[in-house]
Computed example of a mutant assay.
Amino acid sequence: LVERAYPAAWRAKARRHPATRTFQALRMAVNDELGELQRFLDGILRRLRLGGRLAIICFHSLEDRMVKQAMRHWAEGCRCPRHVMRCVCGHEPEVRILFKKPVQAGEDELARNPRASSAKLRAAEKIAEDGTAGSDGACA
């Protein structure tokens, strides 16, 4: 049924069976996978020790976007609006992102494990206990 819902021209070019994405979406909805990931991201920094490293492997673009945005948010300094001339929030980065781009499987890994083709690894190191800054109020 799912296969017939896609145009024949699309099916001819597709690398995977059309039902793959459909059943992935159903599984993600039933298991509330994005909700679970968000709850994990909301609480993990409190559990990570100073100097501790967090590494997350994502297999789906929605998951990867959530992880990337969370890590960027944790790594940003001052969160004052742009029109404010001097930092008043005192926020300092909580993590240091370890790789600018996600780490992906190389050719040798893909030859041994084709399912690794969609995997993306992102990692960060905790550098501050919380988002509060020192007393000088300078932007990071």
Rank of each mutant, 00 (worst) to 15 (best):
R21N: 13
F59I: 07
S117M: 11
G43A: 14
E107P: 12
V2R: 07
L34V: 03
C78D: 07
T22Q: 09
R15V: 03
L45P: 09
L37W: 13
P93I: 00
T22W: 11
R49T: 12
A14Q: 06
E94D: 00
F59D: 12
R115P: 00
D42N: 15
C80T: 02
C87I: 02
C139V: 05
G51A: 06
R27Q: 06
A116V: 11
E36A: 14
V84C: 01
G52K: 08
L98Q: 04
D42W: 05
F23H: 05
A123V: 10
H73E: 13
G43P: 00
G137Y: 10
L45V: 11
P18H: 06
G90L: 03
I44R: 06
M71E: 13
C58L: 13
S61N: 05
R53V: 07
A138Y: 09
W74G: 08
A14R: 09
S61Y: 02
R115A: 12
R11G: 02
D32A: 14
R86E: 01
V88M: 12
R15M: 09
Q24F: 02
M85K: 15
H73L: 12
A124F: 04
D64I: 07
E76K: 15
A5W: 05
E129H: 07
Q38G: 09
K126C: 05
G43F: 13
L62V: 04
W74Y: 02
P93H: 00
V67C: 01
G52F: 01
P93W: 00
H83S: 14
S118F: 07
V84F: 06
F40G: 11
E3C: 13
C139L: 08
L54S: 02
A140N: 13
K68R: 13
H17A: 01
A128E: 01
Q38R: 15
V88C: 07
V88A: 08
P102N: 04
E107V: 05
